[in-house]
Design a protein around this nucleic acid. Structure first.
Lengths: 331, 331
DNA sequence: CTGTTAGCGCTTTCAA
DNA sequence: TTGAAAGCGCTAACAG
């Protein structure tokens, strides 16, 4: 029979010291005489002792784990956020416990409340409206939220969606586009920010905006809505998509329908997912700096955990990426 | 000042029962008289009591957490695996603790050994050679490995890479291709399986294979190696890429270089990532069923944890996806 | 420098 | 059907 894992008591006995001494030594909280340290070290290796993190966590209340909640981990925007957050976490000795909420938004609250008991802090990306999120501020753990908040006193990391949308639209206007349409996704909290930026630029140019609303922020959805947009009575000469995924789906179907991009129509998106650069024509986009956002959010959260004071809102400037899917129109 | 979270003792006191009773009631381990149950229920809601999962874990030794280690979470193949694994885990009351090893393969052992102390089991995708993995079998937690193993007595979930590669190559041969090349990635343990399948089909057709080796399984790498392949002395008439990412990068650069796909050359890949369907021409591929693999691995692991006996190797049949990036050659 | 002594919040015999 | 009591493995005062 295999004996159960050695405990700190076994080590203490083998080294003929107290458990307190072993504990302090292991945690580097204190130095001891060379003789004692050597004895402890020997006992540890002989026994193959490993400190039980659960017992430690119960006492210290710290788990060295951070919860990260995203909407859909297969969306490259979120994979990148996770990548960035995970890297920073690992560098500082933390692990990431992932939550993918997309499929069950109804259980989001329960899921996050439960999660909060198992982690030292959490980073949340949610589709909930701010008015329904009050409970988040009551969670007894540090929390960083992705996106802007008006009321809730939570630290946030947000991209400037309004600004990004404005410059993207302005660029299209300057290229001479007149009939610009927005393929949006109103279920998202960022949709209205982008719409605001677009409208502002359109208004400044004295143009009317056509808006189409999608049911999902996916390639399949962009593909599905394509025909109604390009084969409608007044085809737009430029389309701004809520994100790159929708734009990619749209472009594929447009090609099937015989609509050439950018000759017949310009198409642009948001996020700067890696694949936008590898389709033909390459997709212009607003780089929201996904990975950086993830890293920044994690840095901010760890700072809060450390007890540092942090600014409430960290805004990350987006960058316009110009590529071949846009083309100037005759004035 | 905010009082600290209520414990089971507070509940017991409020309901004037013992902590043992509360514990059993909460865990549904036993029924009690209606009066007692009502009192406990009331105390719990009044106090807003939440069971501390850490304390529970320390005693029971179960954390309801599964560790999942992948090579690069931004690779859609792994995102999908995670998606599938996470769904199954959540359905059965487990959470997923993610490890992304790509950047520090050197610390993989330490990372996983540490991880093993915090989870009930783990699922591992690794680039290590089997001969260097003996320690994995010694980890004192259930573990499911992705890929085939010869020696180690670990349960595994694997795709039939050899078979997939064989049928893919056979298809190209039947289309009349003569000069077939493989853009491989020898650092991967699956590379040789794929190479084996390709060689077998080539041999059966009496053809010679050209092999080029990449440094990374990425779009950028496919892009980088493109010119040396298409502008070399003997341009292949078909290219099999280690994965879809490399194929996508290659196709983009081929277009830049004036090489038309599939007219001048057919290109195929592995994985069936979603983006392959949305480039032009669409990328034929071997669908390795990433999401299904993740789900299957998690099911298998949870079965092991439950104590069920499971078969050592679960093989998942790949499916050939034909699309526009291949074209028949004149015989 | 080192050890003693209390627990952390919970589960789990075992007894009533 | 209920409770008393003994810890799980570790840390954290406090003493010496």
């Amino acid at each position: 029979m295999k004996k159960s894992a050695p405990t700190i008591r076994d080590v203490a006995a083998a080294a003929t010291v107290s458990t307190a001494t072993v504990s302090k030594y292991i945690n580097g909280a204190q130095r001891f005489s060379p003789k004692v340290e050597a004895a402890i070290e020997a006992a540890i290796t002989n026994l193959g002792y490993k400190s039980n993190p659960l017992a430690k966590s119960m006492i210290t209340g710290r788990t060295n784990t951070i919860g990260l909640s995203v909407l859909d981990i297969t969306n490259p925007h979120f994979s990148s956020i996770l990548k960035g957050a995970n890297r920073v976490a690992n560098d500082q000795g933390y692990s990431v416990l992932l939550v993918d909420t997309e499929e069950t938004p109804s259980r989001e609250r329960r899921t996050l409340e439960d999660l909060s008991l198992r982690v030292d802090g959490m980073i949340v990306f949610s589709r909930m409206r701010e008015s329904e999120m009050a409970w988040m501020a009551d969670i007894d753990k540090p929390l960083v939220f992705f996106g802007s908040l008006n009321e809730l006193p939570l630290p946030t990391v947000a991209s400037d969606d309004h600004g990004g949308a404005f410059m993207l639209t302005r660029h299209l206007v300057m290229l001479g586009h007149k009939r610009i349409a927005y393929l949006g996704f109103s279920k998202s909290r960022r949709d209205e920010e982008r719409l605001g930026g677009i409208r502002e630029a359109m208004k400044a140019a004295g143009l009317e905006l056509t808006v189409v609303d999608a049911d999902a922020p996916s390639m399949a959805e962009g593909e599905r809505l394509c025909s109604s947009i390009v084969l409608g009575a007044q085809r737009p000469d430029a389309l701004i998509c809520y994100n790159d995924l929708m734009a990619l789906g749209f472009m594929k179907e447009a090609a099937n329908l015989g609509v050439a991009i950018p000759r017949d129509m310009s198409v642009v998106g948001f996020d700067n997912i890696p694949y936008g650069k590898y389709v033909s024509p390459a997709l212009p986009t607003v780089d929201l700096q996904s990975e950086r956002m993830g890293a920044t959010a994690m840095e901010k959260l760890l700072a809060v955990i450390r007890g540092d004071t942090v600014e409430k809102l960290t805004k990350i400037a987006p960058q316009l990426i110009l590529r071949a899917s846009t083309q100037a129109r005759p004035a």
